Amino acid sequence: MPTEVPSELPVGDPEVRKAQTFQTKTSEQVDLVDRLNKFSCWSRAVKAVARLIRRARKVKSCDLSSVSERQSAEQLIIKDMQSQTYGEEIKLLSKGHQLPKQNKLYHLDVFLDAEGVLKVGGRLSRSSFPNTFKHPTVIPQGHHVTSLIIAHHHERVKHQGKGFTINEIRSNGYWICGLSRAVATYIRHCVTCRRLRRPVESQKMSDLPVERTEPTPPFTYCGMDCFGPFWTKQGRKEEKRWRQVQYLTEQFWSRWKKEYLHSITARQCWHGTKRNLQVGDVVMDAEDTLPRSKWRLGTVTEVIQGKDGLVRRAKILFGEKELNHKGERTIRTSLERPVQKLVLLLEAV
């Protein structure tokens, strides 16, 4: 008869080896401002956070967010951004300590307001201006939210330039560290500003070709004869005249080498090396006969490099303004254009 095997092992059996298993659970914490990287508009980001706050408070209204809700959302975004960037400074100030002299915010005399927002102390506390003007909110440099704020106020001043944008930002209660450089960087990459004011592209002037630096017989590269026409016949008179022509030719090339060739050695313009145009760049074709607002947009499809590796010409694919019944551009034109006739609007990724 077969013996029955117990389905369960007795507790404390010396033949049984004990083993322990540990289960670890990892969770990635994403801050609020990190989620705002998907937004390219400051007002839309604020409205989205305002709706999240409304849902967190279990308000079921589907109406548009109010001004107070958007202000609360903006304050929440800035507090979260400040806690990421200025965490140590906020800890010191919350304990009543002063910032060390080597800290970047020391000269601003920063403080925490009643809501826990880091603001500039400054010297305007006795003025009659609003608190947002007297004590602007400190915004770190290089943050995505900072770029959204700069873009928002730059559009409000209708792309009028660096000075107008800086004044608009500060008058609305923001103190961005390194504001001048941050605004200049943003405007330099603003597509609308490039369409309005960016100059045409340039590239370092190339070396002279061989045909412009070596003596060659007439009519080799051009159709102008500097020494004739001369008719020659057999005889002493004609031979003497031919020798005179040879002498004048030798004198011409000698003076051309000594007096002219060195005058074109130096580059008169386009001295520095610039960024090469790349396939996929979006450009605007500068046409002298049309106003700037009528210049065509195109995409670089091919670049033509010189012997030095620099691009001075490129093939551009232009799309005509006429659309078919499906809203598609059916007529496309490909032209080869020098970089001096192109305005770069958007670099290829």
Rank of each mutant, 00 (worst) to 15 (best):
G228E: 09
P215D: 06
K119N: 04
E15H: 09
Q98C: 02
L297D: 00
G161Y: 11
V279R: 13
R51G: 12
F39W: 09
D281Q: 10
A182M: 10
V145S: 06
V279G: 05
L297E: 04
Q251H: 04
V311C: 07
V339M: 06
L108E: 08
I53L: 11
R236Y: 02
P2F: 05
R57A: 15
N131G: 14
P130I: 05
N37D: 14
N167I: 03
V30G: 02
P6N: 10
L335P: 01
C177S: 06
Y221A: 08
T232D: 09
K162D: 07
V138F: 08
S202I: 12
S65L: 07
V16W: 08
W253M: 03
L196A: 12
H144E: 00
E4F: 09
S7I: 05
K60T: 13
V120L: 02
S127P: 10
S61T: 11
R212T: 15
I264R: 12
Q102G: 04
H135E: 11
E320D: 13
Q340N: 06
Y86Q: 12
E89F: 01
V303E: 00
S206F: 08
R194H: 01
E8A: 13
H271M: 08
R156H: 09
A56Y: 02
I139G: 06
T265W: 02
M205Y: 10
K257Q: 15
P199E: 11
V311G: 04
G309F: 14
P291R: 09
N103M: 00
L346Q: 14
A184M: 01
F129C: 02
G327Q: 10
V200K: 07
E328P: 00
S125H: 14
G235E: 13
K104Y: 04
K237W: 06
E115V: 12
L105F: 01
S43R: 05
K25P: 04
D308Q: 07
P218G: 01
C269P: 03
R243N: 07
T249W: 01
I77G: 09
Q203G: 07
R236C: 00
G223A: 14
Q340H: 09
I139S: 05
A286M: 04
D80C: 15
H325L: 05
K257C: 01
K257H: 04
G173I: 14
Q82F: 13
I169Y: 08
A348L: 00
K95V: 01
V339H: 03
Q244R: 14
P199L: 06
R57T: 11
V33H: 07
V200C: 13
K38C: 11
T192N: 04
N37H: 14
T24P: 03
C190D: 08
P199N: 13
F129L: 15
E88N: 11
